[in-house]
């Protein structure tokens, strides 16, 4: 077993354990912390694939920004088991059934998916920042600019809603 296999196994184990922690933990703050751990482990996978830019953007956007906001809200609301409203039974059944249906769809989709064989001669530096930037601003410039407009409108929308 090579060193990259060992790292891959350890990162995957951490990611899966943390993902289980998110749904099994009773305390919402612990859930958020597990989610952060999971994101960091997934970022580790990106660096294994030499996708450095994706790695660092994942850290900045998800662990650095979005999860901080999650934590912020949860800490201010101070949720705990005592004040948690009792859910009705039928809601639990509905949740289990819809979750199971989603799992079924995912398994069915993955079963028929064909994984293309990795070409040994494929370039490994495609995830580096200069290559990614050049691709984004030449081949994919229209979708890129369109999504930036989308982001801008989302920001304006958030400000408008916040002012009400």
């Amino acid at each position: 077993m090579g060193i990259d296999m060992i790292i891959f196994t350890v990162l995957s184990a951490i990611a899966i354990a943390a993902a289980l922690g998110v749904i099994l933990s009773k305390n919402p703050v612990n859930s958020v912390l597990c989610m952060i751990t999971c994101f960091v482990a997934i970022a580790g996978h990106y660096i294994m694939l030499n996708a450095q830019f994706l790695f660092v953007v994942h850290l900045i956007v998800y662990t650095g920004a979005i999860m901080v906001l999650f934590l912020f809200v949860l800490m201010m609301m101070n949720l705990n088991a005592d004040i948690e409203p009792q859910k009705r039974n039928w809601l639990k059944y509905a949740g289990a059934i819809s979750g199971g249906a989603l799992l079924l769809v995912l398994v069915a989709a993955l079963r028929d998916a064909s994984v293309p064989a990795i070409q040994s001669g494929a370039p490994t530096d495609i995830g580096l920042i200069s290559n990614l930037g050049k691709t984004l601003f030449t081949s994919y410039v229209v979708p890129f600019e369109l999504s930036s407009v989308l982001f801008l409108s989302a920001m304006v929308g958030a400000v408008v809603i916040g002012k009400k």
């Binding site: 830019f53 790695f55 660092v56 850290l59 900045i60 662990t63 650095g64 920042i129």
Partner: peptide, 11 residues
């Protein structure tokens, strides 16, 4: 990605 790493850690 040196400087972006710093931004990530600061975050």
């Amino acid at each position: 990605i040196g400087v972006l790493w710093i931004m990530a850690v600061v975050g």
